[in-house]
Structure formats: C-alpha cells, structure tokens
Design a protein around this nucleic acid. Sequence first.
DNA 1: ATTAATTGTGTTATGATGACGCAAAGTTAC
DNA 2: GTAACTTTGCGTCATCATAACACAATTAAT
Lengths: 233, 233
Amino acid sequence: MDNENKYCYKYPHAALTADCVVFGFDGESLAVLLIERGIEPFKGRWALPGGFMRMDETITECARRELLEETGVDIEFVEQFNTFSSVDRDPRERVVTVAHYALVRKSDYKVMAGDDAVKAKWWNIKELPTLAFDHDSILRCAERVLRERIHFEPIGFNLLDEKFTISELQRLYEAILGVQFDRRNFHKKITGLGILVPLDEKDTSGRGRSGQLYSFNEREYNALKNKGMKLEF
Amino acid sequence: MDNENKYCYKYPHAALTADCVVFGFDGESLAVLLIERGIEPFKGRWALPGGFMRMDETITECARRELLEETGVDIEFVEQFNTFSSVDRDPRERVVTVAHYALVRKSDYKVMAGDDAVKAKWWNIKELPTLAFDHDSILRCAERVLRERIHFEPIGFNLLDEKFTISELQRLYEAILGVQFDRRNFHKKITGLGILVPLDEKDTSGRGRSGQLYSFNEREYNALKNKGMKLEF
DNA sequence: ATTAATTGTGTTATGATGACGCAAAGTTAC
DNA sequence: GTAACTTTGCGTCATCATAACACAATTAAT
C-alpha cells in the first residue's frame, strides 16, 4: 500500500476547500485581499486566500484559518455565499470550494504573506489582475452578493472606523453600489433609521465644516430588527 | 489492500452530498417533499431527498439526480442556498452537504419512492415530522431563504399552473410569507408590474364572479430586468 | 328574482423619496 | 483679520408608492 495515500474510501471523494473574498475600505475605494501563489498549479498567479478543510473544523472555520495562515489577517466575521463545483475547476483533483466573504477596515490589519503564499496584498477593486483557478468568477459573484446584502444587513459598518462621519459612510455605500447619492437625502435617511449614535466629537480632518462623528450601535440595531421594524439601507 | 476502500488520498477527505428542499403548492398551503429512509443511519425516519456527489457532475446536477432517483421527481430549476458542514452531522463519516431548494406545482409530479427511500410523500409545511440528520435546521433555513428571495425573483410562478388567477397568486404569496394582503391592493400592484399576460379565458371554478386568467411571461420579465427596471413583488 | 360570494376599479390619506435652496461652521489664501 | 472657498446640517417641495376603504360588476346557489 502506498504510504503517501493512506486515507481510503469505498467511493471517490472530492477535496473540499474554503476560499475568502476579503473586502477592505480605505475611505475612498474598495479593495480585495489577494495572495500570490508560491506553488503549482498557477504558481506566480494571484488568487483568493483559501485552502483545504480539515476533519475537525467547519468550512467557515477553515476559511478563517486559511486566511490567517496565508495573509496574517484574523477576521471574526466570515460568511459563506456560494459553493463552486465545476468538474474541472482544479487541475490536480476534483475540488469543490465554498466561497466566503468578509469586510474589514484596511487600516486594522497588517498583511503578511505566509504558508503557500509568497506575497499578500490589497488590490483596488478596479485594477485587478487575472486570477488563478475560477477565482475571477468567484470574485464577481462576491461583488454581486455584497451589493445585494448591503441593503438589508449592516455589514458595511465593519468597513469603517469605530467613529465615522455620515460622509464617510456615504462614500462607502457609493463605492460598494457604484452609484451616487444626494448628500442631503442620504444624511436624512441614514440618521432617520435610529441606529447611529451621535458622539460628543467632530471630525476636524476635512477642509470645510467639521462633520459630526457617529458610532454604530449594534445592540440598538438588533433590538429594532427583533421588533420587526423594517430596516433597509 | 482492502478492495472495499480503493479510493485513496494523501489527506483525509470529507464526503460531499447534495440535499433538496422541494416546495410544492396545491392552491391552499405549502408542502415539502420528504422520503422515508430505508437504510441506516436514521432508518425509518423522514429526511430530505439527497445523496453523494459523483466525480463527473456538479453539486447541483447531483441534487437533481438524487431527487429523481429517490422520489421520481425531475425538476429543472434547483438552486443551492447554503452549505452545512458541522463536524458531527452524519454518524457514518465526515459529510458536508450543499442544500438546494426547488419550487413546483404538486399536481405536475407523480411521486414514487425509489433507491434508498421506502416512501416518498408531500408533507404540509405546518405538520412536519422530526427529520433525520440536521435536516430540520436545513429546512428552516430553506424557508427563510424562500421568504427572502420571493420578493426579488419570480420563483413563485413555478408553483402555479400555466394559467392562474390573481387570487391564486395571492394565496401563494400569503402561504410563503405568512401574512395577509389586501386583495385589491395586491391586484393592482401585481398587474402593474407588467409581467402578467391576461388570457382570453376566465376561471369559472369558484363560487362568485369568475376571475381573469393570466400567464407569467418570463421573456417579458427578463426583458424588463435587463432594462434595469426595479422589480419587487 | 334574490342572495351571497367573488372580482375589478376607483378614491383618498399617509408616508417615503428625490431634487434642490440656503445658512452655519469650518479651512485656506491674502 | 477678512474674504473666498469647502463642507455640513437642516428645510422645502413635488412626486411616487402604499394602505385602507368604497363600490359596482359578475357569477353561482337558492
């Protein structure tokens, strides 16, 4: 018996991986965290961080672990959005991947390549390279899902600092949705939801009038949601 | 070498399955298609139709095939909604399942148990038994996803006959969403979308005034959608 | 014919949305 | 210091979508 292949099954098994599309925001535009592959296949090509699931972890725990190992980034909220299972998506063997997404503020994380990755860095979402495997289509799917979910979940707040201005929030929504809002209508709508807490501080970094700083109150958001209140951003 | 276990890998592999939550409608209430398991584990318990993925099919092709084999029901539109990967969700080995849903008119399908299923039948969604594995939580997740997607996709029309009245459509939406609409406002809103085609026929089966029969024009729907028209049901 | 059930259309009040005006509060240039 | 410029916060108004309800038209049952 081949010692290299000691895990044997009655029926053929596909390998299972988790991949991560990590969105980051710097106040201006969206970025995605990619790694440069250090091993074959697709050695030297950029790809989504991810890897093979172990037997003692769920697929989402796998996504978090692989992301940490390959990029040094440890993210609490990682969520699956689709499973990709084309028969020939990996040249090595049959591999099915469960794609996840996460949203973070870029400034909170120090990116360090590790494991099978020779590099890890943020890429502006408008200037992406061609990716390994079917990761291009996974990424496009992630963008579509993000645009849909941002309307109903407060996931966008993960991308901002603890304290933020309405303008920063607006720039974020505009970057994700690819549209422009009227500044004054956005202000009214977002403050009218009752989930932003005004702080006793202002943002004096801009050139004009200082903007009121707010924080997002997740408990308040959940309370409203449980009451059945309609919350659409 | 054990001839029983001839598929060997360098690293342990989880088994991969597809499960199906098939929703059916009979004009009054929603039902789900379940099978009674004929083999261990959970022999004699009711479960979602589903089974192990082959190496030459995608996970969604697997869902369709297993559904056909176990229930005799062949459904074109089956869509994945979530992957379940708890470490101990199957007592035999590590099994990860990609859950799918489908929506059909009950009258279109003749249900016949096959394969590892000893029975297959429709269960009213309000009177379900306790299911095998973690299928209870998969089913609850499917209901939640269905309620969300029905607002933005015309999936509900799969549950109705080719020709239907506005009242039948309303009963369907009420069954899925668990709410009551004002009959007259629903009528105006749904006809105003411009995706229903009035036919030269009326439904004379009811007790009062005969209702206008409509059909759903999918081409028209897609045309409107591609034009960027907002379509919310 | 009368009654009851059901459908199709209209009316109205209310609230949300989108486009825009304008003053207040800051910074920058001189 | 002051004028010019930038940005923020609040208000107004027309328009559209929604919800609640009235009422006439159509059909079956009696």
